[in-house]
Amino acid sequence: MNSLLKLNQVEAYINQYHILHNISFDVREGEVNVLLGRNGAGKTTTLRTIMGLNSVSKGTITYEGENIANEKPHIIANKGIGLVPEDQGIFADLTVGENMSVAMKQENAESTKRLEWVLELFPDLKKFWRKPGGQLSGGQKQMLAIARAYVNENELLLIDEPSKGLAPVVVEKVTESIQQMKDQTTILLVEQNFLMASQIGDRFFIIDNGETVHHGEMEALKTDKAMMKTYLGIS
């Protein structure tokens, strides 16, 4: 299968702190790739670095055959990469509708159709179309954040802990929506909720202390109790 995104020995700093030491992995087209690892391992930083929000001090990030390391975020976004950040990044004073308009790169018949499809996926957003984003519930905010990433035809979605702090019913909803997107785009998902990760993930990478230490098929990980215990703290 084709590799869409490839990180090769990526290192990154936040201020003067060396956070990513050696991140290497390969995201294959059409799959859901899950980044796993303990809190503070560097998963969020990895996604932000891919998006260009954090600079790369060493190594390469190849996307569709082109090195995008240290490219500006908007240029990376316009190459077809969408981000659903850990804190959701909702524009609190803008209404749901306005949040969507900022996200939509163009407005034409096709994009309107896509918007309608996204709203079918998340009917709540339609219902609260005129409500300020800051007043939504946690789950609705997450859906809005995901909807903003879906509304453009991105080739790769970076989704950071979509289940964080959500009630189980809402998690199911979010899981379902990600499964719906699976056919259309490639997904790089950070997820601590192992149940969810194992339901939708095809492959996994484990990050520990800013290094990728393992990777493989999700199916294999489910039965590897030792690895889960060592790196994920799941017993």
Binding site: M51, G52, L53, K72, P73, H74, A77, N78, G82, L83, P85, G89, I90, F91, A92, D93, L94, E98, N99, V102, A103, K105, R148, N152
Partner: peptide, 16 residues
């Protein structure tokens, strides 16, 4: 207005 609230997100949505 969005930029006032969250610059990084605006950039991540493809805006210079």
């Amino acid at each position: 207005r969005a930029g006032v609230m969250n610059k990084e997100m605006v950039q991540s949505l493809g805006i210079n």
